[in-house]
Structures are given as C-alpha cells and as structure tokens.
Design a protein around this nucleic acid. Sequence first.
DNA 1: CAGATACGCAACCTACGGGTTGCACGTGGA
DNA 2: TCCACGTGCAACCCGTAGGTTGCGTATCTG
Lengths: 120, 120
Amino acid sequence: MPHEPNGHTADQVSDGLAEDRAGAVFGALADPVRRRLFSEIAAHPSTATELANGLPISRQAVAKHLNSLSDAGLLERERAGRDVRYRVTPQPLSEAVSWMAEVGGQWDERLARLAQTLER
Amino acid sequence: MPHEPNGHTADQVSDGLAEDRAGAVFGALADPVRRRLFSEIAAHPSTATELANGLPISRQAVAKHLNSLSDAGLLERERAGRDVRYRVTPQPLSEAVSWMAEVGGQWDERLARLAQTLER
DNA sequence: CAGATACGCAACCTACGGGTTGCACGTGGA
DNA sequence: TCCACGTGCAACCCGTAGGTTGCGTATCTG
C-alpha cells in the first residue's frame, strides 16, 4: 500500500481526516465476524470471553477483532476489575454513512436525501 | 490442557438478507484505491486504462479493483467496442447504509433518523 | 493463601489480497 | 491490410490479516 503520489483529476472526494476514518470503519466492517461482534455489542455490551463463547474461534481471535473495531473508533473499552467490557460508539458510522451519501448521492435519490438529512 | 472454549456455538448470523451483500460492499470500500476509483467513476464513468492513468499502479491492478467493486454490485460494465466503460450502481450503498443505520440506530440519534428516512 | 478466571503479549502458521509482468485476443484507425 | 491500443487471463511475488498456541500477570473467590 504505497502512499498517494499522483493526484490530478479534479476530484472533490477526500475530506482528509474523515477519509482515513472512513477507511478504517469500512475495513473493520468488512469482516463478517467483526460485523457480528459489533452488532452483538450494540445489542448488549460484552467482554471478549463472553463473545468468544458464542463463536467457534478463540478468545484471542475475538480480542484481535475487538482491537480492529476499537482502532476504527467503533468501540469503547471500559475496564471493570479484571473484565473489560466493550460498548459501541456509533459516531464513526455516521462519518462512513456521510461518505457514501456524498459519493452515491449524485446517482441515487435516496442517498441524496440522506446526505441532506446528515448535513445539519 | 485447558483450552477450547465454545464447541456449540449456535452461530447462524441471522441478519439474513442483505448480510452477504453488505459484507461485499464494505470489503470493496475498505480499500482506499477502490474508494478513490469508485468516487471518480461516480463523478465520471470511465474505463480501466483511463483510471489507471491517474494512478501510480498498473492497468491490471485497476482492473482487479474494478472487479471487486463490480462483484459487490457497485459497478456496472458497459462494453463499447474494445473499451469497457464503468458506471456506478448505488443501490448496494443503500443496503450498506441500512445495515449501519439499523445496528447503530439503537445508540445514535442521527443514525436512528437515517433508518427512518430509509424505511419508506 | 491458593486456585480459578480474564486479559494481554508474542511467536508462529497459512491463506489471501494487492501488486507486478507477460502474453493472447479482438477492435479501430491510418 | 497492418498495427496500435484496450482488455482479459495467468503465473508469480510478497506482505499482512485472521487464526492458533503458549505463557505471564492481575484480579476475583473459596
């Protein structure tokens, strides 16, 4: 993954920082296990071991996924004694949605409306 | 040897429906090059070689990315003689947005409103 | 206090993603 | 007609994402 030399083609795109964040969010949500974890945590904040109990993978694997989600800013860690409980922080989702609405809004009526809804 | 959590896992992700599609979309959008390509195509339908000219990578690399996007249903191919021109088909974006609004809506006011906007 | 429990770190393995090059094929222009 | 150009396919290279096991440490509990 090289840098970003180039650049021409008058493009609007990149909101700079938001761009990086959006990438991290999409990357995090790209994995089915992570989507699953995220939605479970959204429904009920949990710890790594709890989540691992419901999945066919090890706790450490789950922990790695939680780190990805965390790095993308989608999760918040809360330590309670020896447990670490995770809960969702959906702001990054909004940013990702914004990106999609912005890019796709030129072509899709619904997305265009979304973009407006988000604007304010 | 203490190890091995789980073992029963009633896993069945069960978000059913557009779950697969959503995954493909997030996966496609996870890569910065692909986001770039997608947004350029959204602004102006183009061919692989055209797009490659604006990037530091080979045409074949671009072609692969376009296939990813295409597989995710985000692009539409239109053959014109020896050229193949791509244009965006944003419906999958809407589905992805729906997923996010649905999951994140429980926690975020803005996303909840989005979910409503999409409902109808 | 002793043992179980939950976490974090690190080493390791493997598959796959993103990139390259090379070449064959079809189409369009001079 | 002949050749240049755009595409598609395949082989190949390499880094890293996702998984494992092993182990050390902190905390809870009997």
